[in-house]
Amino acid sequence: MSEEKPVLELCNVDKSFGPIDVLHNINLSVKAGEVLCLLGDNGAGKSTLIKTMAGVHAPTNGELLMDGKPVSFRGPKAAQEAGIACVHQFGGTFPLMSISRSFFAGVEPTKGWGPFKVFDRKKANEIAVHEVRNFGITRIDDGDRLVGGLSGGERQSLAIARAVYFGARVLILDEPTAALGVKQSAHVLRIVNEAKSRGLAVIFITHQVMHALAVGDHFAVLIRGGIAADFKKGEKSREEITDLMAGGESMADLEAQINVSA
């Protein structure tokens, strides 16, 4: 596992929505079997950045390279077909749909022919249940159950299981541990490590230093839409990382502010 070429690379990427510039001059790369942690304050542009990678937004300037070759995705589906799977913040599942229908939304397995192709419920149920159980959610044994009946962590696991199942090469997770309990978070982190050991390139967004340090090989910090720091595991101390995540202000200063207003 020592490929030199990064699987996914961004070169001088800018992104603006009309007059609002969200990302400027982003250079980033992620290799196979590596976990890139994307850190930054609220509104720094992390979600926008990964949406640009996942084909949701097209970059305003700059280019995306996959295996060193320039690519441009027409939509999320094109990115998915190229092997980029993404679990977006707050999303990925449909509460009022069954587990298996939600799992296969957009890529339904069918049987039959011509215009009479029908959704293959049996196959969908089998695969969906199997994949989710493999991520340790053994409570799920019926693909016909509605997603709305699952806990937040189970839903997140369902979304990740789906991404891993469909995304061959790059797995992008936008705050997968937000709103999860300690045990469920540990679970998600284990999934990240599993994906990594299978040779996937993983991009992992989090606000929790602990979670980032636990799985990250490579860290990039976004501040107001620009890369403020890009470093490898062990190059910076935990305190330095925390300060960077707070948008460059030192934690000590922030603590002082908290005490003043109290």
Binding site: A54, V56, P76, H88, G91, F94, P95, L96, G106, V107
Partner: peptide, 10 residues
């Protein structure tokens, strides 16, 4: 159910 997720799912 969720337009954004549906779009992201392709």
């Amino acid at each position: 159910g969720d337009q954004e997720s549906a779009r992201n799912a392709g």
